[in-house]
């Protein structure tokens, strides 16, 4: 089976039912996408599929065949960080960093669909992402900042 990940076509060995998360991490070495719960509750495994945030731990690879899959590794372009990545640094919206990739992907997906979200819209869009360190207020600020610069 072929998958298009970060604009590159990959030939995949895994069974078609295997969740995308494990194919990314174990087969392709794209470890920026994290395992946190395996049941779509924490959001650490979020990637973009055709621009929309998706929980890769619950997504069988056959469901994303022929679609554009984007992971955290490909948000940076030509050495320039994505506005959401830069805003997370500027607002110091992270502590241990384990939720960060999923948060950034969810936020990047939100901004594609809504370039100028209110704090309430940001909270609602990111409700499925857990930051156990409790950096939520800074994440909201970071997404607001990214929206201004995007």
């Amino acid at each position: 089976m072929d998958l298009v990940i970060n604009a590159v076509r990959h030939s995949i060995r895994s069974a078609e039912e295997r969740p995308l998360l494990y194919v990314l991490r174990d087969e392709l070495g794209l470890t920026g996408t994290k395992y946190g719960c395996g049941e779509g509750q924490c959001g650490a495994c979020t990637v973009l599929v055709d621009g929309a945030p998706v929980r890769s731990c619950l997504t069988p690879v056959k469901a994303v065949q022929g679609k554009q899959i984007t992971t955290i590794e490909a948000l940076e372009r030509d050495g320039r960080l994505h506005p959401v990545q830069q805003a997370f640094i500027d607002k110091d919206a992270l502590q241990c960093g384990f939720c960060t990739a999923g948060m950034i992907m969810s936020a990047a997906g939100l901004l594609k669909q809504n370039p100028d979200p209110t704090p309430a819209q940001i909270k609602s869009a990111l409700q499925g992402n857990i930051c156990r360190c409790g950096t939520y207020p800074r994440i909201v600020e970071a997404v607001r900042l990214a929206a201004k610069h995007a």
Partner: peptide
């Protein structure tokens, strides 16, 4: 002062134990 390893974290390059190979 911002985190010294912040860029590695936001780009998915920071290697946690589960990322080691």
């Amino acid at each position: 002062l911002g985190k010294v390893n912040a860029r590695a974290i936001v780009t998915g390059q920071e290697k946690y134990t589960s990322d080691l190979n």
